[in-house]
Computed example of a mutant assay.
Amino acid sequence: MNLSNSRTVSDLSIYPDNSWIVGDKVFSSRLMLGTGKYKSIEVACKSIQKSQASIVTVAMRRLQNANNLPQDNLLYSLPWDILWLLPNTAGCTTADEAVRVASFGREICKRLGQETNTFVKLEVIPDSRHLFPDPVGTLKAAEYLVSKGYVVLPYIFPDPMLAKQLEELGCATVMPLGSPIGSGQGIKNLENIQAIIDRSAIPVVVDAGIGTASDAVKAMEIGSSAVLVNSAIAHANCPVSMANAMRLGVLSGRYASVAGRMKEYDRAIASSPSTGILP
């Protein structure tokens, strides 16, 4: 068998470019990680390292103030020369509160040496039971933050109309939930998320509800730009191994999305030729 003209696995051109852009910044990994719920700082750091994530999000309300951060805080344990901090407004129940916390996050970025970092993951969640985001409050806060030069990544219920409105306001991404925060139920809103992806000119990041690597694969297969994972890794029996599984899942789903799946048929199609068969 002549393989002289075949492309080998060493020819990296057969693989898609996995870099992507948020705002005007290029990131090499399409896996984003949260930093809550880990059993220890050591486990969190090892998991983040194994994931090879480029963007790490931290809830600003867990920090007291920019001038009095505890020295054992995870912020002091991560390599911010290679990671990009995404401050988030988790825990905020109103648009005004989210705006204040976003400003605080900006100061934290400066303190860590990321002077040009104006990113914010926008969460406005008044519902303490189901933790569904407030669409009106999110729109209000997003409009203000965009006008002030922030790179806004809003967390939303998978509503295609809301996603389009946020895009038109100037948000850098939209981040629809796959299922309720921390539930591990996987992607329960697949059709809505697909509709958002199909209509969006900005990156779509599936956030919340991912429970295992196959959920990350599915999110990427349908065309998501990235996924954000926290609980699925932090609550795994071995977080470091799950972080690696998520890394591979994102890559697998991305490759499948770019390759394009085969057409589905309603009957069996023989894989062997029906002609030229010896009698």
Results as ranks from 00 to 15, higher is better:
residue 14 I to M: 14
residue 30 R to C: 09
residue 42 E to C: 01
residue 10 S to G: 04
residue 55 I to P: 06
residue 55 I to E: 01
residue 32 M to Q: 11
residue 36 G to E: 14
residue 58 V to Q: 07
residue 46 K to R: 13
residue 44 A to E: 03
residue 68 N to V: 11
residue 50 K to G: 03
residue 21 I to Y: 03
residue 43 V to Q: 14
residue 39 K to I: 10
residue 37 K to M: 08
residue 66 A to Q: 08
residue 32 M to L: 15
residue 44 A to K: 05
residue 55 I to R: 06
residue 64 Q to F: 06
residue 12 L to Y: 04
residue 67 N to W: 05
residue 41 I to G: 02
residue 44 A to F: 03
residue 14 I to N: 05
residue 17 D to I: 06
residue 44 A to V: 02
residue 67 N to P: 00
residue 33 L to Q: 11
residue 66 A to F: 06
residue 29 S to C: 12
residue 43 V to P: 03
residue 44 A to R: 04
residue 55 I to Q: 06
residue 54 S to K: 02
residue 52 Q to F: 05
residue 40 S to V: 03
residue 47 S to K: 05
residue 17 D to A: 01
residue 39 K to P: 01
residue 28 S to L: 13
residue 45 C to K: 15
residue 48 I to Q: 02
residue 34 G to L: 00
residue 56 V to T: 02
residue 40 S to P: 08
residue 59 A to E: 08
residue 17 D to F: 02
residue 24 D to G: 05
residue 18 N to G: 04
residue 31 L to G: 01
residue 17 D to K: 06
residue 52 Q to T: 08
residue 58 V to R: 07
residue 69 L to K: 06
residue 49 Q to W: 11
residue 68 N to W: 13
residue 40 S to L: 03
residue 67 N to Y: 10
residue 28 S to Q: 14
residue 58 V to K: 11
residue 22 V to Q: 03
residue 37 K to Y: 11
residue 19 S to V: 00
residue 60 M to F: 00
residue 37 K to I: 01
residue 62 R to V: 02
residue 66 A to R: 07
residue 52 Q to H: 12
residue 14 I to L: 14
residue 12 L to D: 01
